[in-house]
Simulated assay, not measured.
Amino acid sequence: MAAGEPGDLGGYYFRYLPQKTFQSLSTPETTSRLRQWSMLGRIKAQSFGFDQTFQAYRKDDFVMAFFKDPNVIPNLKLLSESSGQWITLGTEVKKIEAINVPCTQLSMSFFDRLYDEDIVRDNGHIVKCLDSFCDPFLISDELRKVLLAEDSEKYEVFSQPDREEFLFCLFKHLCLGGALCQYEDVLDPYLETTKLIYKDLVRTLRVCATRQLRVTSRRSLTSSWTVSSVMFTFSTTVTVWGRCLSVFSEYYTYYVLFTRVFILIQISR
């Protein structure tokens, strides 16, 4: 098969999009925080395009076709645990496991319960607790206890479906950080960075217009799959009908455009 030709699995043709950048990962404030959390240089996002309609029920074929594509193998970056350097995939993947990760949360009010349950004080300071361990993490505050300690009385503040949300997964990664993480005493840096990166990966743009004009919205619906210790997030959009409130307090129809682009994000400790 010539380079760039569709593979046998689903006929998908993938192309690497190096021109697509993610400013949320390179702002001075974000890089400063990632350095403090021992994550700088250990989180990377890449974009690829594909030429066929994505069908959720065929996600296994889609992911396998991705890893076998000749445009993916020399461009997909992986973090080597032995050297700590970014390397290319370099070879075909023989086996995959595709797991859907929902991306339905579009508001940071999702985390308001941390204040309601006295995990975080009204002034934003994270409540401390007696030290305990959840290998390899030291738990010294109520936030990490909620994230890690299943026997904690407040662990159920977030239900299992909540914990499967991409927003929660990203927040958890940032809160736990890398091997030499310097933890925050207040919640805001975690929330602000989570929001910035999440909005960069999952975009929601709404434009309201007059009655005579069609109103459109572009919204990325994300599905994620985990392969070994690497999280791959494929972001695509589907046609969805809904309502949008105009400045005149009247409702107009909007729809979501299909973009045929997905995002790949890798987070490693």
Rank of each mutant, 00 (worst) to 15 (best):
M1G: 11
A3Y: 13
G4P: 00
G7C: 07
D8M: 13
L9E: 11
G11C: 12
R15D: 15
R15M: 06
P18E: 00
T21M: 01
S24F: 01
S26E: 14
P28I: 07
T31L: 11
S32T: 07
R33C: 10
M39F: 04
M39T: 04
L40F: 02
I43V: 14
S47H: 06
S47I: 03
F48K: 03
G49F: 01
T53Q: 03
T53L: 10
Q55K: 12
Q55A: 04
A56Q: 11
A56I: 03
R58M: 12
D60M: 09
D61Q: 10
M64N: 01
F66H: 01
I73V: 06
I73T: 08
S82V: 10
G84E: 02
G84V: 03
Q85V: 15
T88W: 01
T91D: 06
E92Q: 05
E92A: 09
I96G: 00
E97K: 11
A98E: 10
I99G: 05
C103V: 01
M108S: 06
F111I: 07
R113M: 07
R113A: 07
Y115L: 07
D116P: 01
V120I: 05
D122K: 14
N123I: 03
I126T: 07
L130M: 09
D131H: 13
C134V: 15
P136T: 15
D141G: 02
R144T: 08
V146P: 11
A149C: 09
S152H: 07
S152I: 00
S152K: 10
Y155H: 12
E156K: 11
E156F: 14
V157L: 08
P161Y: 12
D162T: 00
E165V: 04
L167K: 07
F168L: 12
L180H: 13
L180C: 02
C181D: 14
C181Y: 12
E184K: 00
V186N: 15
V186D: 13
V186P: 03
L187P: 03
L191H: 08
T194A: 13
K199P: 03
K199H: 07
T204L: 13
A209F: 14
Q212W: 02
L213P: 09
R214T: 06
V215S: 09
V215L: 15
T216E: 11
T216W: 11
T216Y: 08
R219K: 10
T222D: 10
T222L: 12
S223L: 15
S224V: 11
S224F: 07
V230F: 09
M231P: 13
T233I: 05
T233A: 05
F234L: 10
T236K: 08
T239S: 07
W241P: 11
W241E: 09
R243I: 12
C244G: 14
S246P: 05
Y252P: 02
Y252L: 13
T253Y: 13
Y255F: 09
V256L: 10
F258V: 10
R260P: 00
L264H: 15
I265Q: 05
S268P: 01
R269Q: 05
